[in-house]
Each structure stands twice: as structure tokens, then as C-alpha cells.
Computed example of a mutant assay.
Amino acid sequence: MKVLLADDHPLFVEGLKNLLLSRGIEVTGTAGDGLEALEKARTTRPEVILMDIAMPRCNGVEALRLIKRELPEIKIVMMTSIDDDENLFNAIKSGASGYLLKSLHPEELFSLLAELERGEIPLSGGLAARILHAVACEPDNARPEHKLSPRQKKVLGMVARGMTYKEVAAALNLRERTIKYHMERIQELLQLENRTQLIAYAAQNGFDRSW
């Protein structure tokens, strides 16, 4: 895993860098604000950016939007010491691949990074439930279920219950790439930004229990 660090606190960055290096994770560089993070992302092409929310010149959420617009393949995980629902939801809506609190234990960090490598969404404890609540309370989230076909609803429900695309494909006697296509189409129809929002929508609307 190649990781770029973006944070305006040098002591924290240096400590995190050394921690990652000790586990064999390559650190492609560091940035002290969002604009520098964008420049470093362009030049070093990391797989993952661990980025603080509160930074000068360009904060983490703004930088997240800029980087995802230009380099959508990079996974960006927000890290913050402030447990704030607005920042959390704005980051997820803007395409963040995860959201971690800086107070987490080092072993938890590596466990969550392993989840990210497996294509999952790393979230510090308790944040998933709050994302669900925030998504449910968004007026724009009231999207009619009739947009989805019965097959799409079934696929979404099975994924929401924690099944992998491979497991869903086997259960429905379909190809794994067909399941991936269904999920991409569902995301498009519901006008959601990422898999985190899809799972939250599914749970809120009972797809994980009914399909």
C-alpha cells in the first residue's frame, strides 16, 4: 500500500509516518494543507491518502472533492480529532473511502487499513450508525424504491446483509461482474455517491431484512 499523509501538525505526521513505515507501508510523501495534498497526489500517485479535516488554505473536505474530481481512483480516508457529524457526513457524501478518529489505537488503524484494502469502508467505532441516521435525515435521500427492479432490490439487500459480490453471484447463479454492474446501476438510480451510502440506504429502508 502506498500512502500519502496530509495534516498540518508535523509531530502527528512524523509519528504516523514512522508507524506506517514500521509495518512495511510505503509513505509517498506528506502535505501540510489541502492544496499541497492535491499537488503531492498528482506527483506521487498514492493508492491511499490519510487526510486531516481541519487544515489551512484548503481543508480536508474541500481537498477531498478536488482530488476525487481529478484522481478518482485514489482512496481518501479522513482522519480527525473532532467527533463532528457535519464533517463526517460531508466527507462521506464527497466520496471519502473511510473516516477515522485520531484517538484510535495503532492496531485498530492497521485493521481498518486492511479493511480498506479488501474494498470495505473503514470507520471508527460508532460512526456507521451515525452515517445511517444522517443519510436517513437528508431530504434528498427520500428516493422512491420503485426505481429499482425486483432483482436490483434483492442484490442490494444481500449486499447490505454483508455478503460479498462473489457470494451474491453464487446465490443467484450469476457472474460476479453482473452483481458489480447491478450495484453500479443501483447507485446511479438512487443518486448516491458511494457504497457506504448504498448500505445505509438499504438498512434504513429495510432491504437488509426483506430481500
Rank of each mutant, 00 (worst) to 15 (best):
M55Q: 05
T30K: 13
E120W: 08
K40W: 01
S111M: 13
A200Y: 06
I76F: 04
Q152G: 01
L11A: 14
G206I: 07
A114F: 02
N194I: 11
A37T: 01
M78D: 07
G15Q: 04
K153E: 10
L116F: 10
G95Q: 08
E188S: 14
I131L: 10
I49G: 01
E117W: 04
L100S: 02
Y181G: 10
T178K: 13
I49R: 07
A134D: 08
C137S: 15
L109W: 04
K147T: 10
A114V: 00
K17S: 13
Q191A: 15
L190A: 11
L71D: 07
A200N: 05
T164P: 06
V77E: 11
A129L: 14
E26C: 00
G29V: 01
S97W: 00
D52M: 02
I199G: 03
L100H: 04
P10E: 07
N87R: 10
A31L: 05
T80F: 02
E73F: 12
S94H: 02
E188H: 12
Y165A: 14
L189R: 08
R23I: 01
V77Y: 10
E108A: 14
E70W: 11
P122L: 10
S97F: 03
I121S: 11
T178G: 13
V48E: 00
E26Y: 00
A171L: 09
A37V: 05
M79V: 13
E145P: 00
A63C: 03
E86G: 06
I25V: 15
N141Q: 12
D83G: 02
A128G: 13
L101K: 09
K68G: 09
M158Y: 11
K166H: 05
L50T: 06
L16E: 03
E176G: 08
N59M: 05
H133A: 14
P72E: 09
T196D: 02
M1Q: 06
N173E: 14
I179K: 07
G34Q: 04
N194S: 13
G24E: 12
L174C: 10
E39A: 12
K154Q: 14
R175E: 15
E115S: 11
G119F: 08
D33M: 05
F89C: 07
A37I: 03
T178F: 12
E117Q: 14
A200T: 04
I67E: 00
L192V: 02
R45T: 10
E47K: 13
S124L: 07
H182V: 06
T164N: 04
S22K: 13
L16M: 15
A170M: 13
L174Y: 12
P150Q: 09
N59T: 03
E108V: 13
R195C: 08
L100T: 04
S81P: 06
F110R: 07
T80V: 06
A128R: 12
T196A: 15
E145H: 08
I179F: 09
L192W: 01
G162Q: 08
E117M: 10
I179C: 11
R45I: 05
R23W: 09
E107D: 15
V135D: 02
M158W: 03
E117F: 06
V3F: 03
G34W: 00
K154W: 03
T44G: 04
M158Q: 11
R195I: 13
K75F: 08
H182C: 02
A160E: 05
L113Y: 10
Q204R: 01
D85G: 00
W211C: 07
Q191E: 14
E86T: 15
P56L: 01
A54T: 12
